[in-house]
Simulated scan of single mutants.
Amino acid sequence: MDPTIGTEALAGVDGPLGYALVFLLAAIPVVEVLVVVPAGVALGMNPVLVALAAFAGNLTTVLFVIAGSDRALAFVRRRFGDPDEDPSKRVRRAKRLWKRYGTPGLALAAPISTGAHLAAVLALSLGSGRRDVASWMAVSLLAWTTALAAASFYGVEGLGALV
């Protein structure tokens, strides 16, 4: 993930359009909250509004993936192969997390391990229920978004005090 993707896209966009762009960028599986939240806060946007928009954008598409999990699983199998036959490094990592910690562990590690969208599909393919996956992904994204917004804001403020 290239952190400049979010910063370049958000640079020069003000007001409600900026937060709408945060929502859209957070909905993109490769970008997600890990890139968009720090970029938005670094550009001087309101950290609470950035966090809300990023959380809503990321969770919305994750819920769509869960709702269409049959199609999403077929896509993952086409893109990454059958999870049981020669899985990719990301899939192997997700399976290890799921076997060890279940749906909660996979969901909580998703933003930094596989991405929220792929983790949701993998949890479903490994036997988790849709309601469990949706609940744990929401908890995970809320926790990560809140932590990222706070760290970005206080990190930027702390750097400003040092300079």
Rank of each mutant, 00 (worst) to 15 (best):
L126Q: 14
L162K: 05
A143G: 08
I5M: 13
V36N: 07
P16A: 15
T7A: 15
R92P: 00
Y101T: 09
L162Y: 12
P83W: 01
G115K: 01
D82E: 07
V37P: 00
I28L: 15
W98N: 06
V65E: 00
S152L: 04
W144K: 00
L118Q: 02
P47N: 14
P3C: 13
V13Y: 05
A94L: 03
P3I: 12
V35C: 07
R77G: 04
E85L: 14
R71L: 14
A54V: 01
G81T: 03
R78W: 03
V41Y: 01
V133M: 04
V22F: 10
V31S: 06
A67V: 12
T4W: 14
S88Y: 06
L106C: 01
F55Q: 02
N46D: 15
Y154C: 10
A42S: 13
I28A: 14
S152D: 10
M1N: 14
R77N: 08
V37I: 11
K99W: 08
A20Y: 11
L24V: 15
E8S: 15
A123Q: 06
I28G: 05
A161H: 07
N58D: 04
L63Q: 10
S140C: 05
F23Y: 09
T103S: 02
A149K: 00
T145M: 01
P47D: 11
F75G: 08
L10T: 04
A138P: 05
A72H: 03
R92L: 08
V13C: 11
P83N: 09
A42T: 11
V76A: 12
G129W: 08
V37K: 00
V35T: 14
R79S: 02
G18M: 15
A110I: 06
T114Y: 01
S113E: 12
A116C: 11
I66P: 02
S140H: 05
V133W: 00
L141Y: 03
V139F: 07
A20W: 09
V121N: 03
L21W: 05
P38V: 12
S125D: 14
V133I: 09
A150V: 11
T103M: 00
Y154F: 13
V48Q: 10
R92G: 11
P29H: 09
S69R: 09
D70A: 12
W98P: 01
D14A: 13
A116R: 06
L43I: 11
L122T: 08
V65P: 04
F75S: 09
A11T: 15
A151M: 13
R77Q: 10
V33D: 00
A26I: 07
L63K: 05
V121E: 09
L59Q: 13
